[in-house]
Computed example of a mutant assay.
Amino acid sequence: MRGLFRKDRKECWVVEVSAEERVARVFLGRVVEPGDEVGGRWVREVGAVEAARWVRWGGAGPVGMSERRWGGMRGRAEEADGERDLEVASGVGARFVCPGEVEWPGALDELGDGRPLGLWVRGRASLRMWALRSVAVVGARACTEYGAHVGASLGAGLAERGWVVVSGGAYGVDGAAHRGALGVGGATVAVLACGVDQAYPRGHAELIGRIAEQGLVVGELPPGAHPTPSRFVLRNRVIAALTRGTVVVEAALRSGSLVTARAAQRLGRHTMGVPGPVTSALSAGVHELLRGGGQVVTDAADVVELVGEMGELAPERRGPELPRDLLDPGARRVLDGLPGSRAAKVAEIARAAATTRDDAIARLYELRALGYVERHGESWKLTRQAVMSVRGGRGGP
């Protein structure tokens, strides 16, 4: 059955997934590797139920799939059991969300045949609703104190502004971003490269547990599945597709965080980077991203200005306001016309300020009342307190 509803300001069909379809997709999740576009196209063309039946009972592999890969899928199918995986997941409070269901984030469909066959989700919130207003914050695992500080600040700042912080649950910047959001009572999503019943890395078992209670833990691999280097890379496409934009805090030139950013660029999402010291190898990847079209951000306000709705602008960046900034422009010109270390007569001051003698006299009395100048007979001089202010305004030492 299908029903029409509004999603992302567009009309979309919601699919009511049958129990048979759900079990078939869970089964195929153990057979087809994440991001396998050939396998994904096959499932799309023949349907999940028929694909599951086909791989169970043999025959020739789908068009475009090598005999070796087909043999590997057949071998994995012998151990796969969709109903068992659903039972195990239920025991840890996880559910399996299929494409087209109400909770399915439509943005994932932009991955084409490489989209997940479904997603395992732990947590009470709706993944689709949270994905609508989410930002990925990623970066180096072995980050510096600077990277950890910026990651936590971004996580907290975005959460305080009502945005969902999405990351990979890893050490370093990922963990800092999650903790920043959790610390202010905000929403965060950890997208794992293993089963959602697993804690990886082991040292983040407590953190991932907190995320499952306060936010969402998401993954496309079945319960009990362990991460591999290739699965980390493929997981990053899900992080990029789920969110409106990706912020990279620290990354070396070969960092997996840059894989996430490049996936976001291919999908037309905002890609952002926080610059760091030019002497730091952990900022070299970020700087390369910025050279390639990424946008510079320094805090949550900058991020929200890019990914948010019209009018969500970052505050104007200005240096500290000095008392002399509040002076009338004419008074500032006369103040600038006074020598820094000696007294001067009115005529000299008027010439330096490009004004008349009478105007200069009027401005000098105004400045004396404000404590900027003092009179010495027929001459005028800056007060001791005003000297540093004037030097600063002139760019002096």
Rank of each mutant, 00 (worst) to 15 (best):
M1C: 06
G3V: 15
E11G: 03
C12V: 15
E16W: 01
V17Q: 02
E21L: 11
V26M: 06
L28N: 04
E33M: 05
E37M: 09
V38G: 10
E45I: 13
V46C: 03
E50A: 15
W54K: 12
G59M: 12
G59I: 14
P62V: 13
G64R: 01
M73Y: 10
A77N: 07
A77I: 12
A80D: 03
A80M: 09
L86A: 10
E101F: 08
L119I: 12
W120G: 02
W130M: 14
V138Q: 00
Y146E: 05
A148L: 15
A156K: 03
A159N: 01
V164I: 09
D174S: 05
L182H: 02
Q198K: 07
E206H: 08
R210C: 13
A212K: 02
E213M: 04
V217S: 01
R231N: 03
F232V: 11
L234I: 13
A241G: 10
V248E: 03
V248H: 00
A251W: 04
S255M: 08
V259P: 01
R266Q: 14
M272E: 01
V286W: 03
L290T: 11
L290F: 13
T298V: 15
A300K: 01
D302V: 13
D302I: 12
G308P: 09
L313Q: 06
P315V: 14
R332H: 08
L335Q: 07
S341P: 04
A344S: 15
A344E: 11
I349S: 06
I349D: 02
A350I: 12
A352P: 07
D358Q: 02
D359C: 00
A362T: 14
L364F: 09
L364Y: 08
L370D: 10
L370P: 03
G377M: 11
S379L: 06
T383S: 08
V390F: 03
V390G: 05
G392W: 07
